[in-house]
Design a protein around this nucleic acid. Sequence first.
DNA 1: ATGTAATCGAGACGGTACGTCAGGTCTTACC
DNA 2: GGTAAGACCTGACGTACCGTCTCGATTACAT
Lengths: 194, 194, 194, 194
Amino acid sequence: MKRVVSFRFMSDETPGPRGAARIHQAAREVLAGRGYSALTMEAVAAAAGVGKSTIYRWWPNKEALLADALAEVFKGEEIPDLGDTRAELRRAVDMTMDNYADAGLAIALPALAADLARHPELLARFREVFLWRKRGNIAAALHRGVDRGDLPATLDTDLIQDLWAGTIMYRRLMTGGPLDDDLAERLVQLAFKV
Amino acid sequence: MKRVVSFRFMSDETPGPRGAARIHQAAREVLAGRGYSALTMEAVAAAAGVGKSTIYRWWPNKEALLADALAEVFKGEEIPDLGDTRAELRRAVDMTMDNYADAGLAIALPALAADLARHPELLARFREVFLWRKRGNIAAALHRGVDRGDLPATLDTDLIQDLWAGTIMYRRLMTGGPLDDDLAERLVQLAFKV
Amino acid sequence: MKRVVSFRFMSDETPGPRGAARIHQAAREVLAGRGYSALTMEAVAAAAGVGKSTIYRWWPNKEALLADALAEVFKGEEIPDLGDTRAELRRAVDMTMDNYADAGLAIALPALAADLARHPELLARFREVFLWRKRGNIAAALHRGVDRGDLPATLDTDLIQDLWAGTIMYRRLMTGGPLDDDLAERLVQLAFKV
Amino acid sequence: MKRVVSFRFMSDETPGPRGAARIHQAAREVLAGRGYSALTMEAVAAAAGVGKSTIYRWWPNKEALLADALAEVFKGEEIPDLGDTRAELRRAVDMTMDNYADAGLAIALPALAADLARHPELLARFREVFLWRKRGNIAAALHRGVDRGDLPATLDTDLIQDLWAGTIMYRRLMTGGPLDDDLAERLVQLAFKV
DNA sequence: ATGTAATCGAGACGGTACGTCAGGTCTTACC
DNA sequence: GGTAAGACCTGACGTACCGTCTCGATTACAT
């Protein structure tokens, strides 16, 4: 299983602060412990034991920092070839559900997406990190399923992933419905029918 | 067709300010015109030509005001019995897509949901207005389809609606993918297969 | 005896904050108690039990606030006609020495003058409050002395006042020399000889 | 004519950085060109093409550096015996006026004096460099005048120097009055009358 | 028609967080 | 080993909004 590759949201590709890990960690802790609205730069700085200016030297704003911090724990790794389409799809769905099981990510991601309206230059990178990378990996698994003849050749890999991720995010964010085994199984089955 | 029933997010059930309509309107205008992050109480008050205290007299906070303002334009009305299951479902999907076609609603709803973490007492009302009311109406249409024998008796009306709304919201918010006729048609077909 | 007229350094002639007196007082206390370099807006706000924004609402910057605060305690009132030139001049000198006896004023005035290089629009008002008003009153006493024939008709009222105030400020600020009766008497005698 | 002796304000008596002259020069240039409030250590370091730490290795703080930089151009040399008391005194007054003719020195000296409240250990050295050294030299000239019988034996050499320097500084800093030939002449005459 | 009360606009107020800047300390790499 | 570069923590800056509040002025209803 490949390790999660962190992605820089910082303006240029400069290496980052010595305490980058500590700062990311602090951001996630504040988010998890006190909620999105309490996630202030000053709180993060204090939690990380770092000066505010150190954060601002390396990230242009809160959104960029948060995106980086979340990217580190966002799961989007490759699905290994298990020889079993159903099992692979289940792993893909679980990966998405894992991401949204974390209350921090679940709430922060859409809020972040909303805030990114202010920072359009970050939007593309945001999507790259939180969407395309994961989607590519899942698409690979779907294609293997098609190649094996398990899935219909007409399968729309984008649509199925929108169905998966959308439903999971929607339940977590809006309805508060369960993110359980049953849902996972039904979502997997969708791929065979769509 | 039933008219959109506005719902009070205000603390008590008092009728509201004289300029409620103007204030709601102003809130939506600021949201549409300058984005979610520029949606400050002061901006709304200024845009409505109203004192800040007038707003705070009637709504306890920004979230409640915004929820009210959005509820006014959020579509969730009953689906009339058209005698044609497919047509009714299409209408249900279109209703959801209409809601998310508006950039304001699309971005504001998840952000609002995130902010509501701070105001748990509003969360239940939020869900009532933006979820259950609409869902009840759509469920009625789905049940007619089951009764007609067009839809499987095992249909999970909650799941199908999560699939619909989730996918639409996800496309709008995250992937930026198209919300078009093709998507609507595919979502409708889902109901016949799930 | 005329009362010391406070002078607004605020941009426009608006009446000022409700807590103006408290804020001025706090500024002088911080200055006297912790020195010029500790005179921060935040310290003044805290000492006055006031939000920073209240201060910034009424004074554009630290210099303007300090000028106002000092103007309130700066002595520059009229010298009453005592019928005795020597006594009147002594009173004038004492007035200046009183101003510089206060450690706050003594250190703050030149520092303020230096800082005003950044705020040229305040410089004219600064001079009006801390110079011309007092000088006019002292000049009146000097002219009475000339009229009585006690002082030479050629007396340069500007020069004598520069000598007085300059010497006093210089001793206080630079040499640390005594500001005592002896000095006062010698300065008074200067006027009869210059 | 003796050369101006620079004085170390640095903590220990170590000889100083390789680029001491360049750093002093840079400090004075920044002061003259952009004013006292723009005289930051970073600006000086940049102007001198030197790392900040190099400055801090040799001077404990901004005040010490500035004092050193100004000491280099502050005039306080011996007054040669010209055989003419009036001429010698005029030279003494001119020396002081030269010091204050420079806008940098004029504004910086009092501001520096005010800032030295934070660094009492520097205050004595400050006075030595900018006061006593010059005063001793001028006092020598005054004593020659007394010996020649030109000046009264009761002359208070401290007072006359306070009058001179105080008046000049006061005009420059506070009133903005002229520092011209006429003032110089009148100050010289004071010595004969006080 | 007028007095009383609710509502309103305006905006001052005590605060919190923003994003910036400079001071002064420390580390790294070069010469 | 002194130096240039610059990361780092600290703390103040001046700004924007928050949510509370007080203040007349305007309404609207009750007499």
